[in-house]
């Protein structure tokens, strides 16, 4: 455990009814780092992010954000503390305009003047949002909606942003655009990021560390460059399924 970790997750256990989804998950996110959780469907990726953001009730374990225990706190309290969550599937407020969508995240803030500055900064990262200021959020394309929800998360002035499957349903070119912006946010704003992805291929290039989650437990973790295709594949699908002939390092 490093002192400059912005988030520490220890022994997270969580279940829906009698079915256990997470069986003791531990990891940490370093300040200004980008950590990617990858794994197949049902591995517990979304449950992990939901638990950190306060939407899912945790059975046991602790979640420490900036040295404070936030386990079990209400989602809106966690958001106000500086941890923003972008749920899976681009939940834009479809009947609100782009501008209203962005402003919803700011009402808990006391620094009214800084809100306008932040709004400009979001437009700086996502110029397309400025062009669509008065348009209802629900009428935008998938990529624009993804940018809108990330922009909305930034309006809470977070230090850490959790994003559930930023690439879901987006064209590869848009995915690259989204990740390039996330990369800029890290270097220019000092933002820390924790993302979920089904496919590790995309995040290999950007992540400081990959965490492979399967059946509610961390199977493997490490720097992308240090992870071989075979170890990654085995962690993802289970040992002994790696097919050397097709060199299936495409998870």
């Amino acid at each position: 455990m490093m002192v400059n970790d912005i988030l520490q997750v220890r022994g997270l256990r969580l279940g829906y009814g009698r079915a256990m989804v997470l069986n003791g998950v531990s990891f940490e996110v370093p300040a200004k780092g980008l950590i990617a959780i990858v794994g197949p469907n049902g591995a517990g990726k979304s449950s992990t992010l939901g638990a950190i953001a306060g939407g899912n009730t945790v059975s046991s374990g602790t979640i420490i954000f900036e040295g404070k225990d936030i386990t079990g706190a209400a989602p809106e309290v966690i958001a106000a503390a500086g941890l923003s969550f972008v749920p899976e599937g681009r939940h834009v407020f479809s009947s609100l305009t782009v501008e209203e969508n962005l402003r919803v995240g700011t009402f808990r803030r006391k620094d009214r003047n800084a809100v306008e500055i932040d709004l400009e900064r979001v437009f700086d990262y996502f110029p397309r949002l400025k062009e669509r200021l008065r348009q209802p959020g629900g009428k935008m394309s998938g990529g624009e909606q993804q940018m809108l929800v990330i922009g909305r998360a930034l309006m809470c002035r977070p230090r850490l942003v959790l994003i559930d499957e930023p690439s879901l349903g987006l064209a590869p070119r848009i995915v690259d655009e989204v990740y390039d912006i996330l990369q800029r946010l890290r270097t220019e704003e000092g933002l820390s990021l924790l993302v979920n992805e089904q496919s590790s291929r995309r995040v290999m290039k950007y992540a400081d560390e990959i965490i492979v989650l399967r059946e509610g437990a961390v199977q493997l973790r490490g720097e992308p460059s240090a992870l071989g295709a075979e170890t990654l594949h085995d962690a993802y699908f289970g040992a002994g399924t790696f097919d050397h002939d097709s060199a299936g390092g495409t998870v």
Binding site: A53, G55, E76, V86, F93, R103, V104
Partner: peptide, 24 residues
């Protein structure tokens, strides 16, 4: 008002509105 706006945000997407700090 902001209360009307936050309310409609919660109507559209309850989970996301909570994540944006709305006390539904």
């Amino acid at each position: 008002s902001r209360y009307g706006l936050m309310l409609r945000a919660a109507r559209d997407e309850q989970t996301a509105s909570k994540a944006s700090g709305v006390n539904v």
